[in-house]
Design a protein around this nucleic acid. Structure first.
Lengths: 190, 190
DNA sequence: GTCCTCTATATAATTGTTGACATAGTTCGT
DNA sequence: ACGAACTATGTCAACAATTATATAGAGGAC
């Protein structure tokens, strides 16, 4: 039940479905994703349930926008999610499942290619996060802990994002080295 | 499409549905989870699709077991998943979404309680992973990189698991400190 | 003029996942 | 003798997520 709660969090301020999608592609990218085909029906459903209100907005460009905002009931629903304590044990990381079974690729070059592609994904992601961090440092260089709560907690998630992606990158490098040295040892023996 | 591929990976050796569930609770816990109610129907479906074969086994204890093993077709299906390169960008971490919106909890004590509960989850998980690591070190202390591939790659995932959970634990501690010092500053001003 | 991208909303079909329920034999403690 | 915990298999309803498809105006590239 996380997506509806994330949307309730975003809809403290009015947003359209399209706006929400952009948030997922920017700040929420670190820990959740959602497609428009999931967002639009859910907005309608939550509107029916009384968690949101909507109104027709206008736009200079393209078709008309429908803008949603959470109700008091929606606000309470979000607070009760947070009060229930951290939701742990639901994490899924598909690429680690793939690494677990990499012995199925009988060709060491194919394994190395896999790991290098993973490394390059991580490197790109790290750059993105560093840019986001610099952007924030530029604005709040002198008082990082004086931020309003609404910015402080998102930045905590940016920090752990940086830590995890750095760890991933180091692990990729170390793993590639280990795989190479195993292969070298194997060739020696022949 | 990850669960079916993970099951194809496990079914290099014959397993029952119940066995597979135990694997998810032990070695795969780091990156995927699945319930029995998902495993049993999927085994039947993959059997129909010709990715698995099954045979009725006997057991000393409890009701009879049905044991599955992958076919050559299943093996190829798994290889093609791995050849497609790493599946990235699908990760979901619900507790980070919660942290992102922690400003909705107006009471700092409630926020600290949330973070401490998260910290204690991470500490417990770290202990579990360290035990798993020690168990492996005890068996293969002298030649860690001489392991057969089938053990080497799972251990790579254990290493990144340890790194990520340690990073999480450090981040929890640092975050709790920052939240406390913000609160202290706020009280000073009054 | 045509194609591409961006804004913007939406539906349909399919697949994946969770949680509750139902069944049943074995072993162990009290 | 009774209940709890463990082995073992499964169904069903509800909910969540993905992929493909449809529509349509505005702006820029070629």
């Amino acid at each position: 039940m996380s997506l509806r709660h994330i949307m309730l969090g975003l809809l403290r301020e009015p947003h359209s479905g399209y706006d929400i999608k952009k948030e997922f592609e920017q700040s929420l990218r670190n820990f959740w994703r959602a497609e428009l085909s999931q967002i639009y029906p859910l907005l309608q459903k939550m509107d029916e349930e009384g968690l949101l209100t909507s109104k027709q907005g206008s736009s200079d460009i393209g078709p008309p926008r429908r803008v949603y905002k959470r109700t008091a009931k929606g606000r309470r629903e979000l607070a009760s999610w947070l009060s229930g304590g951290p939701t742990v044990g639901t994490e899924r990381v598909a690429y680690l499942a793939q690494v677990y079974f990499l012995s199925e690729l009988k060709d060491t070059d194919a394994v190395l290619e896999f790991m290098q592609e993973l490394r390059s994904h991580m490197a790109g992601w790290l750059e993105t996060l560093k840019r986001a961090e610099n952007c924030w440092k530029a604005n709040d260089a002198r008082y990082p802990d004086d931020l309003p709560d609404e910015d402080f907690y998102p930045q905590l998630t940016l920090q752990i994002g940086l830590m995890k992606v750095s760890a991933n990158l180091q692990w990729c490098d170390k793993s590639i080295e280990r795989i190479r040295s195993r292969e070298a040892k194997r060739l020696e023996k022949e």
